[in-house]
Design a protein around this nucleic acid. Structure first.
Lengths: 317, 317
DNA sequence: TCATAGTATTAGCATTTGCTCAATCGCTCA
DNA sequence: TGAGCGATTGAGCAAATGCTAATACTATGA
């Protein structure tokens, strides 16, 4: 650790000399007393370790227009649109960074607040972009259980990753994502360790969530929280999208009778009294995002240009 | 403006594709439908226009140690130490960026606050690194007059530059930096436009200042606020450093009888009830920083490694 | 002491980037 | 209409960067 820390220290220094002071790698090598190649390694290590944060501080007109249009069309309190890289296959590029910036923005406030955190690939990517911060005044509460079907910690439950980066009071949910029966869920929720956490989640000032698909790569199915049969039953019952374990039909209603009665997650916090921000982009998520917007399941959105444009084109449904 | 804005828009997009999405300039050129060289130009334009903000998000152990040591030695409430580039001749490299980040940090808070702003090269460089922000809840007050001896706006009075970047309520001081007599100063200060500004300055929650030398390149002299004779007289009277127009001797006392009676600046706000952060680095500023620290003229500091180390070496005085 | 596995370092090369200079474009004004 | 002039563009090249494969080093255990 000390060795590794020392290495990162050097990497940070090299990256500083490179990006901030504008040195070439040769100059850095000379200053740090290493070879040119080692200097290059240090810089690229710093980049790959996420030590180097780049952001483009200019409101691109088209993105601003889209974000304004989305805010008006769906009466959102918050909306951020990042550029699209047409060739990239990533489903988080840009959105992750912007979400991280918004999370940091909230955590940077001195007055204590409660932040709710959902789950998923996008949110995980966002959390990986967080800076290390000290904010013991805040409470961060997971909205979903963190126990995978095999008993291990669910990988895409981001709260533990977040705890590595941010010093705050964390409230994970030591629960499965979906209980085996409605009764079990009630029992679990009544536990003295769980109840206060659920109450905290309901009081969140701001909440960040992802939006899940229910196609063949549905995260809920891929991660083993539901069976293939349950997935198919959900789809037959009209479920199209999933948010923190809850599945919704195209009208934004919870699909009844299959898994929702057993979902152990907290409900989505109130959109009347708090901010619920979804981060999602990409064609596959489009129907889900639309449902979340039209069903008023969210009142904040981080997405990319291409998705924003599609959301503003009413034609294809 | 529309043309220029459109250009910056493209530049921002190119920079985003380059730095965030990780494209090469050839790929960017293809996506934007321009030549490789044009793409390169757009990216470098974005960099030179300051659209690209890079920061290294890793606490370099040595810098942290120094900042902690400085905090303890001089009972500071705030201290930030940035790396030193041994070859750089800049007197602002790193410190400007770190100061800008700290200013942004304060301005990002939702609760209204009063920020005092001094003057000088370092502060100006810091302000140039600020992002554009909307924060109408805050009030930003200049501690020094902004009228140069020739009647024009004083260049190193940073409040107008800051107003270009940040949307807040600004309170400049339509005064010369040094009045022609003690009496004139009293008259000026009694003016209905000035008095409330001075009162505001005294209530600042946080204040950012630079530290000026009194050698032959003393900013006060170079910018024409004092004559060569006055500079020499100040030095003979023991003055070593200058903060927002006020000159101090090695014990941190105001030097009497030469210019201080005529300085039209607001006093340095209280270090008991507010945070006063100085940004300065470099050998030439060392005596000034020392005086500010030992004389308790400040309770916050942004500096670089080399300067920090020198400040912690008591030997040479 | 020596073998060994894993890690770190170096050399060399292909790619990418930044810069200069000459050519072209587009706009203004006579 | 066309000369003049600044701004923009593209070609070519030198510098900087990133990658790969080969080599050296280090720590561990027999």
């Amino acid at each position: 650790m000390a060795v590794n820390g020392g290495k990162l220290d050097e990497a940070a220094r090299a990256a500083w000399l490179y990006y901030v002071a504008g040195n070439t790698q040769d100059q850095i090598a000379a200053k740090l007393g290493v070879s040119r190649q080692s200097a290059q390694r240090l810089v690229s290590l710093a980049v790959s370790e996420g030590l180097v944060k780049v952001h483009i501080d200019y409101p691109i007109a088209h993105c601003l227009d889209l974000s304004k249009a989305l805010r008006e069309t769906y009466s959102l309190s918050f909306c951020e649109v990042v550029p699209t890289d047409p060739d990239s296959t990533s489903t988080t590029l840009g959105v992750a960074q912007a979400t991280a910036a918004e999370i940091e923005n909230w955590l940077g406030r001195p007055e204590p607040l409660i932040m709710g955190i959902g789950t998923g690939r996008t949110l995980r990517a966002a959390v990986e972009h967080l800076s290390t911060m000290e904010c013991p005044q805040h409470r961060i509460v997971s909205l979903t259980g963190n126990i995978a079907p095999d008993g291990s910690a669910a990988y895409y439950n981001v709260i533990f990753t977040m705890a590595d980066k941010v010093k705050a009071r964390f409230f994970p949910m030591p629960l499965p994502v979906i209980a085996s029966s409605e009764k079990e869920r009630e029992t679990l929720h009544a536990q003295p360790m769980i109840r206060p956490t659920l109450e905290l989640a309901a009081k969140a000032d701001v909440t960040f969530i992802g939006i899940g698909e229910l196609d063949d790569e549905a995260p809920l199915y891929v991660d083993g929280f539901i069976t293939r049969e349950e997935l198919q039953a959900l789809r037959r019952a009209g479920a199209v999208t999933e948010i923190i374990g809850w599945t919704f039909d195209p009208q934004g209603r919870l699909v009844e009778g299959i898994t929702n009665e057993r979902v152990a997650s907290a409900p989505i916090p109130s959109r009347e009294t708090s901010l619920v921000i979804a981060s999602a982009m990409g064609k596959k998520k489009l129907p889900g995002i639309r449902i979340a917007l039209e069903g008023k399941l969210i009142n904040g959105l981080v997405t990319d240009e291409a998705t924003a444009e599609a959301l503003l084109t009413p034609s294809l449904r």
